[in-house]
Write a protein that binds this DNA or RNA. Structure first.
Lengths: 149, 149
DNA sequence: GTTAATGTAACAGATTTTATTACATATATA
DNA sequence: TATATATGTAATAAAATCTGTTACATTAAC
């Protein structure tokens, strides 16, 4: 009871859906290669706003993974083979803080622990990120997409 | 320029300082075993509000790692040896979503991808979490604290 | 009793995440 | 060339999450 209370007051972790969104988009594109799919159509599958999809498609274009075409009969499609994109690539495209979260903003430098804590956390956080990258590096978008019928 | 814009609009990842806060607290406690340290003193080292520290101390008490004492001359101290606490334990105590983030809330079940995406993501997310746990399992609080003078 | 600590509720403020509106721009095709 | 229909993106709103703060009941040493 108390514990439940604490958990609800105190959320944790990567608190967004961007990885899920972007891999959903890529999966849809990979399942229909050489077809121009519209952001509205993709958004309808994910059940999110089409503007969000277009923003994420912009990120995918920056990576060179997707090409889009404006105008009537426009849309987006994959620009590379799905086995050229690893899940680590996808995660990196979408991530901008560490797996273990944020470091404290301004610990007290007069305290022997506070003085060095961010240096030590920096190392630990970087190593933890690397472990995740290494694991995701071994899987490709093709592997992921292959799980769907 | 464009890319920077997108990143600033679109933050990602574990967006809180709880792991950093709680390991900071534990490090301070481990460096002064058998001393009752007050939440105010700890808060001053981290440079955060003492109420936050007391809330996190409550989590550490639930784990059995810390005992606290009310009243004058009260405070908190470690209740177990620092080599009995792994960084995986700490992370688990503080985490409540997946490393790769949240799944999409309500994908369209009429879409063949949307229908199954959360099942597939569930597996991937769980495996990724396990990899992080396994890596952090090999390190203890004592190892971490040993890095400080 | 006084002093000084924890425990916790309640709320406020800040930040982050997601959704939405609006519209300029581009392009196929009738 | 006009129309229909896409993307691209700014601007803003709304929702959710995270952090800070105030207040005070409770506890315990002296």
């Amino acid at each position: 009871m108390l514990h439940l209370k604490i958990i609800s007051t105190f959320a944790i972790d990567m608190n967004n859906t961007r990885f899920a969104t972007i891999i959903h988009i890529l999966t849809i594109l990979a399942k229909s290669p050489s077809e121009w799919l519209s952001s509205d159509w993709i958004a309808d599958s994910i059940n999110i706003n089409p503007v969000i999809v277009r923003k994420e498609l912009g990120v995918l274009q920056d990576q060179g993974w997707v090409i889009s075409r404006k105008g009537k009969e426009g849309g987006s499609m994959l620009n590379v083979s799905s086995d050229e994109i690893t899940l680590a690539d996808i995660y990196k495209a979408v991530k901008n803080t560490n797996v273990l979260g944020k470091k404290n903003l301004c610990p007290n430098t007069k305290c022997p622990i506070g003085k060095d804590i961010n240096t030590e956390l920096e190392g630990l956080f970087a190593e933890t990120d690397e472990i995740v990258f290494a694991a995701l590096q071994r899987r490709t978008l093709r592997d992921f997409v292959g799980q769907f019928n």
